[in-house]
Design a protein around this nucleic acid. Sequence first.
DNA 1: TGGGCTGACCGTAACGGTTCAGAACCAATT
DNA 2: AATTGGTTCTGAACCGTTACGGTCAGCCCA
Lengths: 362, 362
Amino acid sequence: MHVRRPATLASLAAELGVSRTTVSNAYNRPDQLSPELRRRVLETARRLGYPGPDPVARSLRTRKAGAVGLLLTENLSYAFRDPAALGFLEGLALACEGAGQGLHLVPVNPEREDVAAVHRAGVDGFVVYSVPDDDPHLAAVLSRPVPTVVADQPTVDGVDRVGIDDRGAIMELAQQLITLGHRKVGVICMRLARDRNDGFAPVERQKTAHFHVQRTRLAGLSEAFAKVGVDWSRVPVVERFDHSTASGASAAAQLLDADRDVTALICTSDILALGALTEAKRRGLRVPQDLTVTGFDGIAEGERLGLTTVRQPVLEKGKAAGKLLLASPDPTRPREITLPTELILGTTSAAPRTAEERWFGP
Amino acid sequence: MHVRRPATLASLAAELGVSRTTVSNAYNRPDQLSPELRRRVLETARRLGYPGPDPVARSLRTRKAGAVGLLLTENLSYAFRDPAALGFLEGLALACEGAGQGLHLVPVNPEREDVAAVHRAGVDGFVVYSVPDDDPHLAAVLSRPVPTVVADQPTVDGVDRVGIDDRGAIMELAQQLITLGHRKVGVICMRLARDRNDGFAPVERQKTAHFHVQRTRLAGLSEAFAKVGVDWSRVPVVERFDHSTASGASAAAQLLDADRDVTALICTSDILALGALTEAKRRGLRVPQDLTVTGFDGIAEGERLGLTTVRQPVLEKGKAAGKLLLASPDPTRPREITLPTELILGTTSAAPRTAEERWFGP
DNA sequence: TGGGCTGACCGTAACGGTTCAGAACCAATT
DNA sequence: AATTGGTTCTGAACCGTTACGGTCAGCCCA
């Protein structure tokens, strides 16, 4: 019994004196052979230590890998720590699980731009979640001849898409602040491009941002405030590369230091908003009396704190992406799913104090 | 130009009038052909829409898939919501990313016991994280002829393992409570088997628990308290199937309702402990004056609340699992990595009130 | 008796690559 | 002139399966 090479379908067949087809059928189509022979095949397999048909060889032959590839932002830890990304991931994983498909996280080396991993992934399709528009990995994915779904990304021709109406949602939020009377606002956003720029982001940078979600939200804000005569080029927008409450706090500090008249801090994520709240508290600013703070996403911790924000259905977004990918392989035209959002009016937003109040207290 | 079937290595070679080997070399070993020819190959590839060597076929030939399989508990959402599991996942993902390996989440259908997905996964190895000892998926993984690492699971012969000293760690915690004077304690634990049993868990069930981690922690507690003469069979142990703060709260309620003398609630996870804290507050019990509450894991929210607990390096655990799997393919004997834990004395533990104080107030 | 049907099994041809041992060619060295 | 060495490219053998289209024996029924 030479245990060097593990047994294969062929060796098993030889041992049994039957054809490979029959052994294959024993595993895949029990109705194609007599129960007795099938029993013998399976028993001999056990005896020889044959672990069943090799998954890779099977994939090659059947032209399906049984897995979905997932391309995430270059920084993996980011995804695992961002509640919104995590919700998406969970939803996608659930959809895959429901369909019996594996979920293959594509390794993205943050250092060298190594696109090879995308080409090496044996998957039946890809989901691309919120990567920069110019990410070479995205291009690599698109070059693969498998169905793809993008999420929180701009439309790519021939590719399904799932997302929310970022522009509309944040405009609704902006309108709320406008109605309350806010005109001097500041914005804290996530990184806008692949290069690090921890500081103010001029309008040009906002417009050419490589991250669709951020770009769109900023555009929505700009549009909403322009309508009531606010000169957007004078609205301070502070960008942070890292996505953490610490970043939110330092951004708030930077912004408030530079512009003390600001009555509202609009953050493009709840995580950043949580940090802003911390900084406000540290400065002795009461929220919402002295300062309004808003977020985006609708994460649990924000809800607990009564954060005014836009809630988006992250879990559903992931599920939708999975379903889109796993449904019909190739319909005529790419589909697009836009999920609804909900404006959550919490306790961190209120009308700004009047100039008078500012000087003399409430 | 029949675009029916996408181009293959062979069709490209035919088009160019060179051998398949040469085309293969153009992609994999650029030094094996002239730069000029390589350029032609690549350009023709682009023209014909050839996406590069098929990953599955390549995997078959090279006998490596470039991915690691991960088997998680049957309930996927659980993993995505448990900070400890998430930390492990992040660590593992980082290790894989560092090695350029994909991470393949094996779909585990909670309904029917469908082990097929394990056999279908084209991976070079498996990591199995905290599944019940009798999980058929675990058996399926072990039957595959690839290296495997188990984490937070009992040792399996021939398989690498990573974990912590659950018994020792919780004994240290127990000793601390004992030193403080606690003798009447109650325990809240996660589910002990695959069947649902939301309620008290008799000693027998504790001992035969299918989840290694829970079983070991309970054994450690039992041992520590037995040493000081506590009859463990009379210690209330409440089990919860779902792992959530709500479960922790309801378990605490059930336990405190049944046994009002309890001075300390030992929870086998921080999540459960957070719930217990909520319930204590709801009852007007002051922590730690009226009730001591402890957890296990060392999650961020627990730290913020000053929870007395055992901190374990979850991220490192995941990284270690990945490294173990990706290091040398097959050493002589299986390795075992036990990571250090740290007892965190927070503000949720203190000496119990004396009987006198109980009746007359502090 | 022979035609048609069914159940059980088999042979061959892919699936799309990689790899290894040369062959062919040319230039440089002995 | 023969040897050596290097580069560039080729042929053929795998990798382990499954899909497809059979074959063949036995049985039913007219």
